[in-house]
């Protein structure tokens, strides 16, 4: 939380670092989540697409390509940091005013998950 004070020269914020990840993650999630829901929650259970299309072996062979792994990492990385920042804002909107703790917990979790992802995929 920051306050505008006419007697103090304000400083340009460094929020763009996290906000750019938040915005990019939001866009990616908004575009891809409906596709995933359509594929895995509707198309496969309703038999429109065969379940074998998404078999473990097929998915694994797909991930054999470094390019695909990079794309998957990018999508998950952005979604993670979007979620972390969204949770920070949500906590703030609910009136819990310990922003430092929210940053530590949510960004910390996102950072750990990023490392795990990087090790697993790259």
């Amino acid at each position: 939380m920051s306050t505008y004070d006419p007697n103090v020269a304000p400083k340009v914020s460094n929020k763009p670092i996290i906000w750019s990840l938040f915005a990019a993650g939001g866009t990616v999630t908004a575009l891809l989540t409906p596709v995933l829901v359509l594929l895995f929650a509707l198309a496969v259970p309703l038999g429109i697409l065969p379940a074998e299309m998404f078999s473990y072996a097929r998915m694994e062979s797909l991930l054999a390509s470094p390019l695909i792994r990079l794309v998957v990492f990018g999508i998950l990385f952005l979604s993670l940091w979007h979620t972390a920042h969204r949770m920070r804002i949500t906590v703030h909107d609910f009136g819990l005013r310990s922003d430092g703790a929210a940053v530590f917990v949510f960004y910390g979790l996102a950072a750990i998950a990023t490392i795990v992802l990087a090790v697993a995929l790259i």
């Binding site: 939380m1 920051s2 306050t3 505008y4 304000p10 400083k11 340009v12 914020s13 929020k15």
Partner: peptide
Amino acid sequence: DVVASNAGIWE
């Protein structure tokens, strides 16, 4: 200076 500060758009 003001608009892109923490008390500006980022709030």
